[in-house]
């Protein structure tokens, strides 16, 4: 009997240890789910109730109409133009154009970093702007990323407003602009207005529209085929793109907005 009691005591001890280990594992899983981070290793990420992952999209009929318009605009106008453009200019040149426009936006990113109290990121953005504007010849090259390992920082007013506690509002699809939300689009408009000093040498609408068109066509020429892939394999391209937009945005902001402090 004594042996039996002792053995069962031993077993009880073992099962306690096992239980403890399980509780710890569960706690880790629960914690990961609670923190709101994207964690692909957690089942909670896949098991969420439909209501909680669905995006607030009250304007879906209007958004779908604009989505269809954008789809046509892409296949009938933008894609042929961007394809021709890509044939004329080698990808190295198009990369430079993309770097150039990207560099012009660094001051706006700098201000947004400050507004979000991301001071080390602000320093990084400033360093990138100074290095790329000089060593990169007006921002045509990106030696900050390539040689000095200072990768681009994502910061926009939409993000700033989000950090200040302002919600997304709802999902929006804008003509020729694409996926955004009410908050982010408002931020984009203000960010774009903040860029006007660059264009002060020309208040001609046609010239400014031309610059914008060049920037967009150049961007599309570097991403030809990506929308086609998404569309070919999806059952509802509208939902697929909406979902991809939110997932991608979450990754960008997770990576670049460390909470609470670095």
């Amino acid at each position: 009997m004594q042996i039996l009691a002792r053995t069962s005591g031993f077993l009880a001890l073992l099962s306690c240890l096992a239980a403890l280990a399980l509780v710890q594992v569960n706690a880790a899983v629960v914690h990961a789910a609670d923190s709101g981070d994207v964690d692909f290793l957690s089942d909670a990420y896949y098991d969420e109730e439909p209501e909680t992952i669905s995006v607030y999209d009250p304007l879906e009929p209007m958004n779908r109409a604009i989505f269809t318009f954008n789809d046509r605009a892409y296949f009938w106008v933008l894609k042929p133009v961007a394809t021709g453009y890509a044939h004329v200019l080698p990808w190295e040149v198009r990369g430079c154009v993309s770097n150039f426009f990207n560099n012009l936006q660094e001051p706006v990113r700098f201000v947004n970093c400050l507004l979000q109290a991301r001071f080390s990121d602000a320093g990084r953005v400033l360093a990138r702007f100074l290095i790329n504007s000089t060593g990169g010849v007006f921002g045509l090259a990106d030696p900050a990323t390539r040689d000095l390992d200072i990768p681009p920082v994502d910061a926009s007013l939409g993000q700033t407003l989000g950090r200040w506690g302002i919600g997304d509002g709802f999902y929006l699809v804008m003509p020729l602009f694409g996926s955004t939300t009410l908050r982010d689009f408002s931020g984009t408009v203000v960010d774009a207005l903040a860029m006007t000093p660059y264009y002060s040498w020309s208040d001609d609408f046609v010239v400014n529209a031309g610059i914008y068109a060049e920037k967009e066509v150049n961007k599309i020429s570097l991403h030809l085929g990506e929308y086609e892939d998404l569309k070919e394999l999806s059952f509802d391209p509208y939902i697929s793109l909406r979902n991809a937009y939110f997932q991608h945005r979450m990754r960008l902001r997770d990576k670049d907005v460390p909470f609470p402090d670095e």
Partner: peptide, 11 residues
């Protein structure tokens, strides 16, 4: 950052 499974799941 875009999970293939999550994307199909929503569709």
């Amino acid at each position: 950052g875009v999970s293939l499974v999550r994307n199909y799941m929503e569709q």
